[in-house]
């Protein structure tokens, strides 16, 4: 009997070794080809003429203004969308009202509409040929081909990220904890601050990071509304394209690498936070 191998020790969910290896290999190679290789290519191209050349390209006035503009747009749109996203998720998760299903669908609209169409819509609404746009220009307020247009376009494109992350979390948690806070004498604001917000903070953080990544990386919508005025309305992604079209490979790839680096920093930040708060995360999972 002792020489018989008992199949009973291996869990039923386990596949043969070869299958496991194959699946893992497939995933790893896909990750390598689709995700890592492009990233590596960007950095190699950026550093092709050496680090000093890459850094020099980044300090050019046009590149600098693009970086500043991109950070400015993200700094304005991300907090705005976080606030509106929280409000929208709160309304949808906590209250029943007529047209709720419609609102939920509407929140997803920016995901299904091409960003170029969104940009074009803004041009039609606020451009000099429209009534609103004409009036605004007559009163010296520029929207299209200026910062407000870029912000509006970015707001539109990044709108769903925060709300989409929060709605399922808030629905799952229900309102009992908030009600408990109210019965204990807390004001609505206090209950929100001390009970609701801590409960959604991880989903919120994740939503904000995604929103931020997209806000900095948006191309299509911004390309249409910004008018691509060099040094004025060119964000980093648009500057990258312009430099590339002008055969300035080092400059284009340096800026692209800087953009990728910003995204990597936000990812690292998220991982760091998750790692540091692992104990609290584990303790506060749904019991």
């Amino acid at each position: 009997m002792s020489d018989v191998v008992h199949p009973a020790h291996t869990p039923v969910t386990t596949e043969p070794r070869t299958v496991r290896l194959l699946v893992i290999l497939l995933v790893l190679s896909l990750v390598a080809v689709l995700l890592l290789a492009p990233l590596a290519a960007v950095f190699t191209e950026a550093l092709a003429d050496g680090l000093p050349a890459a850094l020099q390209a980044l300090t050019q006035p046009d590149a600098r203004s693009a970086i500043v503009l991109t950070l400015l747009v993200a700094a304005i749109t991300v907090p705005l969308n976080a606030a509106v996203g929280i409000a929208a998720a709160w309304a949808i998760a906590r209250f029943d009202f007529r047209g709720k299903a419609f609102v939920v669908t509407l929140i997803d609209l920016p995901f299904s509409v091409s960003p170029v169409v969104a940009g074009l819509a803004l041009v039609l609404l606020f451009g000099s040929n429209s009534t609103v746009g004409g009036w605004l220009i007559a009163h010296d307020m520029r929207i299209v081909f200026a910062l407000p247009g870029i912000i509006l376009a970015t707001l539109f494109v990044t709108f769903p990220f925060v709300a989409r992350e929060l709605i399922p979390v808030m629905l799952e948690q229900g309102r009992a904890e908030e009600e408990a806070a109210l019965t204990l004498g807390a004001s609505g604001w206090r209950a929100f601050r001390t009970v609701t917000l801590p409960n959604i903070r991880w989903a919120l953080l994740y939503g904000v990071l995604l929103c931020n990544a997209r806000a900095m990386g948006e191309f299509g919508a911004v390309a249409v509304v910004s008018g691509k005025i060099r040094g004025e309305t060119t964000t980093m992604p648009i500057m990258v394209e312009m430099l590339y079209n002008e055969y300035l490979a080092t400059a284009a790839f340096s800026l692209a690498a800087a953009l990728a680096l910003l995204a990597l920093v936000t990812l690292a930040l998220k991982s760091l936070l998750e790692w540091r708060h692992a104990d609290v995360l584990a303790a506060t999972r749904r019991h």
Binding site: A176, E179, A180, A181, T183, T284, R286, H287
Partner: peptide, 15 residues
């Protein structure tokens, strides 16, 4: 109201 309320699944603040 100062009504001590105990909820069905207790609704303790989990964090």
């Amino acid at each position: 109201r100062r009504a001590g309320f105990v909820f069905q699944h207790y609704a303790l603040f989990r964090h």
